[in-house]
Design a protein around this nucleic acid. Structure first.
Lengths: 116, 116
DNA sequence: TTTTCCGGTTACCGCAAGGAAACCATATAG
DNA sequence: CTATATGGTTTCCTTGCGGTAACCGGAAAA
């Protein structure tokens, strides 16, 4: 009575899983929200804090630094006074938008179904 | 010297954020992988363990139960012997596929860029 | 009788992610 | 002189997520 594994599995590419890899980028707390809020154009630190009121400055800094290191967002310091810092999506960051949009779309459907 | 918040923010719907809501569904460890592996058709517990070797039975059970409760997957027990349990995506679960696919697509791009 | 297989369950544990609150440096406005 | 705005940093602490490992119950195969 051997285990018969059916072959209708979805395609499994070799090497590190692209799904896991992408989730590692957008999976952190508030990460997707941050990217989503940057999709409308550059935004300053304080503006992001207003856009996402629940995020603490510590976490916001952490996420922005991570995303910068991964090449998803760009950090530009403007030598005004007091200096203001503008964050924007890089080309790579822009490529994440369709995925985020798809997630948002599902979120709407979930709300619709849930609706209790 | 008042704070001038620019208005180029992305649209913010009232109420609970759809983005956060959807991420709560697909955000758990291995969750997206599980849904992805079910997108090719129904799959048994043991098959999923083979598809995703790194997932422990405990976590796999937890995730499947969560997804079942949220109406994303369907659990069907077949009274064979030993009994086999088949998991499949519900209609709601199927709606998640485009988002997952978008994430997978970005994962490929990430690998391409990274490529080290 | 013992083993194998399926689909789990249970107990235990470590650690890192994340929340809260306080603090900081600089420069201009009033 | 003091207040305010900006963009953080630092410290502390809790929670819970997820990993490991062992165990389980029924049935059939050997």
């Amino acid at each position: 009575m051997a285990l018969k594994v059916r072959k209708n599995r979805s395609p499994k590419p070799p090497g590190p899983c692209p799904l896991t890899e992408c989730m590692a980028v957008i999976g952190g707390a508030w990460t997707a929200n941050i990217i989503w809020n940057l999709s409308g154009g550059p935004r300053r630190f304080g503006e992001l804090r207003i856009d996402i009121p629940a995020v603490s400055p510590k976490v916001l800094t952490t996420r922005l630094r991570e995303l910068e290191r991964k090449g998803v967002v760009n950090r530009k310091v403007k030598p005004t006074s007091p200096p203001s810092v503008e964050y924007s999506l890089t080309g790579l960051g822009a490529e994440l938008i369709p995925a985020i949009e798809a997630i948002v779309a599902v979120g709407h459907k979930l709300k619709h179904r849930h609706d209790c």
